[in-house]
Design a protein around this nucleic acid. Sequence first.
DNA 1: TGTACATATGTTTATATATTCATATGTTAA
DNA 2: TTAACATATGAATATATAAACATATGTACA
Lengths: 117, 117
Amino acid sequence: MSLEEKKISCHLTQGEADSFIKNLPVEEEIQDLSEFFKVFGEPTRLKILFLLKEKEFCVHDLTVMLDMNQTAVSHQLKYLRQVRLVKYRKDGKNVFYSLNDEHITGILATGLDHIGE
Amino acid sequence: MSLEEKKISCHLTQGEADSFIKNLPVEEEIQDLSEFFKVFGEPTRLKILFLLKEKEFCVHDLTVMLDMNQTAVSHQLKYLRQVRLVKYRKDGKNVFYSLNDEHITGILATGLDHIGE
DNA sequence: TGTACATATGTTTATATATTCATATGTTAA
DNA sequence: TTAACATATGAATATATAAACATATGTACA
């Protein structure tokens, strides 16, 4: 019996295990992917994204509609900026934010579809 | 000038703001949705899901392939069970886990598509 | 130029949670 | 029925992070 055939686990040989591990996304992709999904795993960010799906808004618009602290909204917008899901333009005293990724609407729709069962 | 027309924010009247707020998913949906996405926002859970996408595995299989503490794996499997993304069957000493949701593959693919740009 | 307004950001605090440790439960086979 | 193995789980710990607080920056306008 070769080394390859020896079970290292319930039903796995070393060779089989290696093969499954090899087909996993590499560590960096896993990290990036989890950070991408993490964005959507927080209620405030979700609400911001749902609002921006309709049209661009300035920070104060969002603060009013979300009924939240301006600071909290700004921090979340900074977060969304860093992961490049939103972009912004300055106009006088205001900064207008809008979506910057065409996947967002689809992702949100899939999620809604899921919980709507 | 009616109350409706008075700006309460940068460019919003009260009526407009109310309208956008009304079109948001209700609070409970937002909560459910964020908890759904939160599942995918963690590297260990992602790896488990990617592995289970191939075939069912017992806890020890996963522990070996992920090179992780059995306890940590069990805790994440419990989590995944609770949000109904995996199901399990017992077979003697082993418990085999498999995916329990047809959205998962699509969600993962969309995410990979996103980070692959 | 000073005041009000809009936004950003560093720090702190409170909370959530991933992992580990210790241990319990359950199963199989000697 | 005892030993070895597989899995689960409660508690402790360490870390991440959302929100709040204090404050800074930047803009417009009187």
